[in-house]
Design a binder for these strands. Structure first.
Lengths: 259, 259
DNA sequence: CGTCGTCTTGATCCATATCAACCTTAGTGG
DNA sequence: CCACTAAGGTTGATATGGATCAAGACGACG
């Protein structure tokens, strides 16, 4: 299966994440270890809050929908999908999380996790006991403020996503690609050449569509030429066009693409 | 236009909000003044934080998208819609807010309001300077915790809404009705008989659809009989059926409705 | 009582869900 | 190392929910 060693040496964090499929990215590939910008500041101040690390193998569950809130999680490496059990049986993907992302914030109000968390890759998270964290924040104003920002960011992200309702699938998928690029970029990876960790069906579910439809969108985008998606490898050739499509300006997008 | 007097006597808050269209609700109609549960606790502790009140007449703007964050708002009475200027010109409704709801939380991370706020009724809000509030929270652990809950609630709400992508319009509208009922119920009003403050087009925009389509859904729902919607007056007859439709269990919903 | 905004209804067309078959790839065991 | 297998991905055919455009009815407010 997916066995990975348990050493806690730093090399662990450097060998794990995405190795861009194509060479020569214009972006600096900095290591995503202690030094990079996934909330280094917070993690430093928060060091004492991290009760432990936890590894989850691919397809493993970190928590279930309805679990009592005890821990918040910060992704250290790997990726997760948040899933909700829609009505009966049907499972919907609510979001994707990668290094630096906080998970479980929705549970603060309800006391229970509102989404299950499933690893898309072999992953590791920091476990942060919420109760203790809340207390500590009071004595660390900086941390307190940063945490509010984190929650606000999450809120914006969700609001942003929910604005996608009603846009065309092309638009939603383009936006998805842009966001993934942005996230990778933040982590120091290329945003024009990256590898997705989730299935077409997962993306479809996240975007309120289906795996089949995603497949077709991918084909369409490839044909348009502003992007090359082969399997899970994504290469963005025309960022402007992609962004235009994501905004629903299809007409202009094509003009830009044809150039 | 919509002129309303500026007195700050308590009676102001009791005469303003919705008077249920139909009589004899099974729910207690408690006044939505200081005594009801729109965060009385917080407002009491937060009293010092409230820098002021501000009235906004119907169709008036409280703030614009992009405005620098200075104030957070808590609705005191009336209702607002949050709007985003999608790409060029097109205006999308991101959410609706009524008494007790916090607005502007998304601005904490970006420093700028991400939505414009427009009053749907003559309304009043509490103005809360964020910087000061953040400071005060540190000295009031209870308030701090409550504020985290509020942000988490907002997060859950958005996440919930974004899960609607891909569901049928019937399902989304049913959910909308359920949520509106729940909100009114929280404020002490009937959740089975209430009046909407927004246009069909607003609802359509919020749900990723159009005014015309909303009109058709309304007609369909009325025909099914589990609800009677006439203009902006809503009456829910079969809560179970409505809930079922909101979950996408249309088949069962109809069975329940036919009884 | 007239006017404007809102709501409803009709006709048409397109995007995308759905069902179904097939292909590809990566992981497995011989 | 190669063949097997199952999960994931692609592609096709068809059906339909909603968008869109257009016209008319209603209702609230001045």
């Amino acid at each position: 299966m997916h066995i990975f060693h348990i050493s806690t040496s730093k090399s662990d964090f450097n060998d794990k994440p995405q190795t861009p499929g194509s060479p020569c990215s214009p972006f600096p590939i900095i290591g995503v270890g202690e030094g990079s910008n996934f909330d280094t500041l917070l993690l430093k101040t928060l060091g004492s809050l991290v009760a432990g690390k936890r590894r989850v193998a691919r397809n493993g569950r970190l928590c279930r929908e309805g679990d009592k809130l005890g821990l918040l999680y910060v992704v250290r490496f790997g990726q997760f999908k948040a899933v909700a059990d829609d009505s009966i049986g049907q499972q919907r993907v609510a979001g994707f999380h990668m290094a630096g992302d906080w998970m479980g914030l929705g549970a603060i109000s309800t006391g229970r996790h509102n989404f299950g968390l499933i690893a898309l890759d072999d992953s590791e998270v920091h476990e942060i006991p919420f109760a203790a964290a809340a207390k500590t924040m009071i004595t660390h104003p900086q941390m307190h403020h940063r945490f509010l920002e984190i929650m606000s960011e999450a809120l914006c992200g969700e609001a942003h996503h929910s604005m996608a309702v009603g846009n065309s699938l092309d638009s939603r998928f383009a936006r998805f690609l842009v966001q993934m690029g942005a996230k990778y970029s933040l982590l120091g990876y290329s945003n024009i050449s990256y590898r997705l960790s989730m299935t077409r069906a997962d993306i479809g579910s996240y975007l309120g569509s289906t795996g089949e439809s995603m497949s077709r969108v991918v084909a369409r985008f490839n044909a348009e030429g502003f992007v090359t998606i082969s399997g899970r490898n994504v290469e963005v050739h025309n960022w402007v066009a992609l962004d235009a499509v994501s905004r629903g300006l299809q007409r202009e997008a094509k003009q830009t693409a044809i150039h």
